[in-house]
Amino acid sequence: MRRALLYTLLAVASLVMVLPLLYMLSLSLQTEAETLSAEAVVWPESPQWGNYAELFTRAPFGNFIVNSLVVAGGITLAHLLFDPLVGYVFAKFRFPLRNTLFVALLATLMVPFFVRMIPLYVLMAHLGWINTYQGLITPFLMDAFGIFLMRQFIQPIPDDLIHAARIDGASEFAIYRRIILPQTRPALAVLGLFTFVFQWNEFLWPLVATTTPEMRTIPVGLTLFNQEYFTLWHLTAAGSVILFVPTAVLFIVTQRYFVRGIALTGLR
């Protein structure tokens, strides 16, 4: 009895979560007439795969995809490059002003993006970086959260490993590259995964920092496409599917990492 109740509850909740997304897929394959029919179409009689092609003729959707890949990919690479290095320094080095700098770093966690939005826009306009990749990427090259995560992960690595390598005459950077970095692989996977998904989905900054359609990322390009052609819901749905597929695939492949990652970030 109790068990049946639990299953019902979980099944209903799961349907509420998944059904809208399945409807999005169905909508993306309907004809325009089907999207407007009085009785909603559950699944189109003949799926209109051509909707996906039509999207590319109505908007520079190819550009959106490339831009999203470059921006989210570039930011993810930068995080993988910088966050562990900075985390390593705070985990294993003693130096003047260490605690001050660490507090100054953690304080940036309290600064929501909207606070930086206006000054960053002014800065980018001044540099002529509106509508450029560098304008979209540079504000997110690293963040305190990733650095903190890496520091926590590197701290338990025994100092002896580092001392031994120093005695063997390894350079400081080689110690980081050869000894520290290989041990952080699980944390790097989580960091890369989360950074990519968040940046792939990011909406506010690409909206502010682009004015030409050719430089928009998918979330922004799709939203403004929908404002222009707001009755063509089958095309908006097709664009949404394109936006969603990479994160869905990444999630299915790395589901365990993902759940562990959330738990890891949540419980310090």
Partner: peptide, 12 residues
């Protein structure tokens, strides 16, 4: 299934 919507962009 419960976690899937968390992966979507606010645009979706």
């Amino acid at each position: 299934m419960l976690l899937v919507p968390y992966l979507t962009s606010v645009a979706i």
